[in-house]
Write a protein that binds this DNA or RNA. Structure first.
Lengths: 196, 196
DNA sequence: GTCTATAGCCAGATAGAC
DNA sequence: GTCTATCTGGCTATAGAC
């Protein structure tokens, strides 16, 4: 039995072992991919014995799911921060791309973490709907910005801008060249300013 | 010993077992990913006993490498066919995108096979240089077309056009919506016509 | 809640008969 | 060249002491 201050396995206290496991899993999976990452790798990165992982997650898939949800939560936080920092949708869109481009060195090594997860989990038979959310939510956020700019084709523009980022991330990673992402961020900023 | 008409393991005769293995591996890996695909899966898909695979490929990695090279060879054939079919670089670029968009249903299910391979193999420590070629060669081909159009920024435009395709392929797959790729092909055609 | 030990399975790879 | 049988190691997952 656990007292009322202890976290149940499903709960998430910052700094708790569950949180540490998810963070270690996110990093390891980002660097090596879902299938190549073993629970032993994750446990070692988190400084937790292998057997203890199963107290927090019944299966590897459950941990992967938690990683996807952690990425989603982080993405929402970032989009909300951009919303708070800027009023004008144009500035918001540029701020998002600027923030993403600041990760260009990491992207050059491992690609976009959300794109990697979508690619790998998208091949599963079940579809793993949570991974698709990693794309859907940014697209819908961008759609709201373009709509606020009065664009009737807001949805198409939103898909285009996220696709540009994802495609550039893939080439940035394939060529190990962070400059590609930085150049694209500048072009997207110009493109957004030129709209209308 | 083998007589002079039999293929050595390294050679590639169309319809030979080595070719069948590579084709089966390419399909299975496209659908399930490199790490999740087992040699038993590939052998079964090719109708070849598992143990016999090792006569043609010393390791799984060697077979994966052969799959990447088969994709590269196919890509070169396709680009050469586009070169033959059209003289004008503008028409060539549109023809390439049109051909890619015709795969939209497959892409909606499994993404772009080249993009998938780059993403997965790009995480390896060695870099797996052959996978990056799957991006480099189309970019260089597109660069030649833009240069032939007299564009001084041919390289940037080439990176952009391939990135647009790859990013759209990712979203097409995440949303399981072939329409995204078809819409993008139309936009790229307009964009190319509007250049200069 | 935590950790050690290990079960059970399945993958890549090999041996060797044919 | 082909194929069956099998080795070996590593992975997910569990059992059970503490």
């Amino acid at each position: 039995m656990t007292d009322s201050l202890s976290a149940a396995p499903g709960a998430s206290r910052p700094g708790g072992k569950r949180e540490r496991l998810i963070a270690a899993a996110a990093e390891t999976i980002y660097a090596a991919g879902v299938e190549k990452t073993t629970l032993a790798d994750i446990a070692a990165a988190a400084g937790i014995p292998l057997g203890n992982v199963y107290y927090y997650f019944k299966t590897k898939d459950a941990l992967v799911q938690a990683v996807v949800e952690a990425h989603l939560a982080e993405a929402r936080t970032m989009l909300a921060a951009v919303d708070d920092a800027h009023e004008a949708p144009r500035e918001r869109l540029k701020a998002l791309f600027s923030a993403l481009a600041q990760q260009s060195d990491l992207i050059a090594r491992y690609g976009c973490p959300h794109g990697s997860l979508c690619q790998e989990l998208g091949k599963r038979a079940d579809g793993t709907p949570a991974a698709a959310e990693l794309m859907r939510e940014p697209v819908e956020w961008a759609e709201r910005q373009f709509a606020a700019m009065g664009r009737p084709d807001a949805r198409d523009l939103a898909v285009q801008v996220i696709a540009r980022y994802q495609g550039t991330a893939l080439l940035t990673s394939a060529f190990r060249d962070p400059g590609l992402m930085e150049a694209e961020a500048r072009r997207v900023a110009q493109w957004i300013d030129a709209l209308d």
